[in-house]
């Protein structure tokens, strides 16, 4: 256990980097995922097709491949960045957006069709129907699965540690290398700090779930 106490500053630093990665990727993924979901239900066939292909590819391939793509293929295509962290954020948000798009889409589908028809019949445009009528109602069913996806995102961000990004898992690896005799304790510490982030998210999910039930 000593090794954890001794390395608390490193854990703390790692926790902050993980939090940073998760929050930034999470926000980008939420925006991108919602746009993808909107494209998926839009009247424009090309948008629907693009969204479907994107979601199916990203959702059905390992996250590691997204990371390889962002960290190694993108630079070869001329997209270079100073830090690997940027590649990590690209990979994490692109990957997570696919799951968010699916969650939002199922939320949209949970809103009865008549709501959209009523909105269209008073002259609302597609964007207004979505923003004023469908998404606010979809949100209520979407929040619990969204939080699950965000919990997965926090854990998935550990893959960045394997791509030279120093976050919680990256520091964990460093510490394990430096303290070969106490690998177990180091990793338990890493797990503990991940739980510090994910457990509150889980509690938030169940609280929200209870609060937002809508009467029909």
């Amino acid at each position: 256990m000593e090794v954890i106490i001794e390395n608390l500053p490193l854990y703390w630093e790692g926790l902050l980097r993980t939090l940073f990665l998760s929050v930034v990727s999470g926000i980008i993924a939420l925006i991108l995922g919602t746009l993808l979901a909107a494209a998926r239900v839009s009247p424009v066939a090309a948008l629907r097709g693009f969204s479907t292909v994107y979601v199916e590819i990203l959702r059905n391939t390992p996250l590691t491949i997204a990371f390889f793509f962002a960290a190694i293929v993108l630079p070869r295509l001329g997209v270079t960045f100073q830090q690997f962290e940027v590649a990590a954020i690209i990979a994490l948000s692109a990957y997570t957006a696919a799951f968010i798009a699916e969650a939002v889409r199922s939320g949209v589908n949970s809103v009865p069709l008549g709501q959209a028809e009523a909105a269209r019949s008073i002259g609302m445009k597609f964007g207004q129907v979505l923003n004023l009528i469908i998404l606010p109602q979809a949100l209520r069913t979407v929040i619990p699965p969204l939080i699950n996806i965000l919990i997965a995102l926090v854990k998935n961000s550990s893959v960045a540690g394997a791509f030279f990004v120093l976050e919680l898992f990256g520091y964990g690896r460093q510490m394990a290398n430096a303290n070969g005799d106490q690998v177990m304790a180091v990793l338990l510490g890493v797990a503990f700090f991940y739980l510090l982030l994910t457990i509150p998210l889980g509690i938030l999910a169940s609280t929200v779930e209870r609060k937002v039930a809508i009467a029909r």
Binding site: E117, I214, R216
Partner: peptide, 19 residues
């Protein structure tokens, strides 16, 4: 959308905005 604004519609299942 503009044209629909001129045509009122009342549905069998009311379809009031639930939220």
């Amino acid at each position: 959308a503009k044209l629909r604004a001129d045509v009122g519609m009342v549905f069998q299942s009311f379809n009031l905005f639930a939220h």
